[in-house]
């Protein structure tokens, strides 16, 4: 009886998994087809593996440059988010007054504001500062938009650290900064890992900010490059698929390695938010 019940669950879940996987399979198959084969046989297996598609799309849109840009932006952004959010949540947890609680509530309200509601004043600000089309001009806003979620998780984590640890540190004569560096940071390293991965993926995938703030080819990020494929390759779907596949693969590999912390971080944030 129990076995029969589980069978139903298996059938349901695996049929949905097939729906999820089929587009990816089609993408891989499509990336291996030449333009002629796309015309005749768009759905089936490729007869001749056109590996050169990958090389063409890699070099024609200058994907290496886009990847470096994205990597620099996401790495700097991730480090910035962790520094800013951990300092802020340490303050919220340690001070614990009404003011710090309202600051926390204000930050969490930032989760609610869509990026596109703030994009126009942001654009004007960045262009007045002369930072349009530079990497630093997108790193700062991207940090700001990722702080609320990071703060939600880090504050929840730091509230669970027993008070006695900090008290004993105070008895030994440590200042606030010392408490933060030598106690709070080592104790919250696991949550920092989760946040680093989630914000890295978020920043790697960010499209609206980069399409507005970055316009030139020299600062193009990966999502912008994906958008450019259609303009450059026109109807050559093989090249487009190959390019999309190249940009997806690093994210999928990263996900398969770190899936545990990504999933736990997102679900925890969802339940607490």
């Amino acid at each position: 009886m129990k076995h029969k019940k589980n069978l139903g669950h298996h059938v349901f879940l695996s049929s949905y998994c097939i729906i999820v996987v089929i587009p990816f399979v089609w993408l891989i198959l499509g990336a291996l087809k030449t333009r002629q084969e796309w015309m005749v046989n768009p759905a089936g297996l490729p007869k001749y593996f056109a590996i050169e598609n990958f090389w063409t799309s890699w070099s024609m849109v200058n994907l290496p440059l886009a990847m470096t840009n994205s990597l620099v932006i996401s790495l700097c952004g991730t480090i910035g988010v962790i520094i800013a959010a951990s300092l802020a949540s340490f303050g919220v947890v340690q001070i614990g007054s009404k003011v710090s609680k309202s600051v926390y509530a204000l930050m969490i309200a930032g989760l609610m504001i869509p990026v596109n509601a703030a994009i126009i004043p942001l654009f004007i600000m960045v262009s007045d500062l002369g930072l349009l089309n530079t990497r630093i001009g997108i790193i700062i806003p991207i940090i700001a938009f990722n702080i609320p979620f990071a703060m939600l998780l880090i504050t929840a984590w730091m509230q669970n650290i027993p008070e006695e640890i900090f008290d004993s540190g105070k008895v030994d004569g440590a200042g606030s900064l010392q408490l933060f560096i030598s106690l709070a940071i080592p104790l919250s390293l696991p949550i920092f890992g989760t946040i680093a991965i989630i914000s890295f993926v978020n920043m790697w995938n960010e499209f609206l900010l980069s399409v507005v703030l970055l316009s030139g080819p020299e600062t193009r990020t990966v999502p912008l490059a994906v958008n450019v494929f259609r303009g450059v390759f026109l109807v050559d779907k093989g090249l487009i698929s190959a390019g999309v596949l190249i940009t997806i693969i690093p994210v999928i590999i990263c996900y398969l390695i770190f899936h545990k912390s990504i999933i736990s971080g997102l679900t925890e944030g969802g339940i607490k938010g």
């Binding site: 089609w26 995938n205 958008n227 997806i248 994210v251 999928i252 996900y255 990504i262 999933i263």
Partner: peptide
């Protein structure tokens, strides 16, 4: 759960481009 969550991790630009190719009027499978 790993498989079901996979599309969320991919950039929605890439997802859009992928589906555009699949649903294309002239070449789509």
């Amino acid at each position: 759960s790993i498989v079901i969550f996979m599309p969320c991790i991919v950039a929605s630009v890439a997802v859009g481009q992928m589906w555009e190719t699949i649903l294309n009027r002239n070449y789509g499978p």
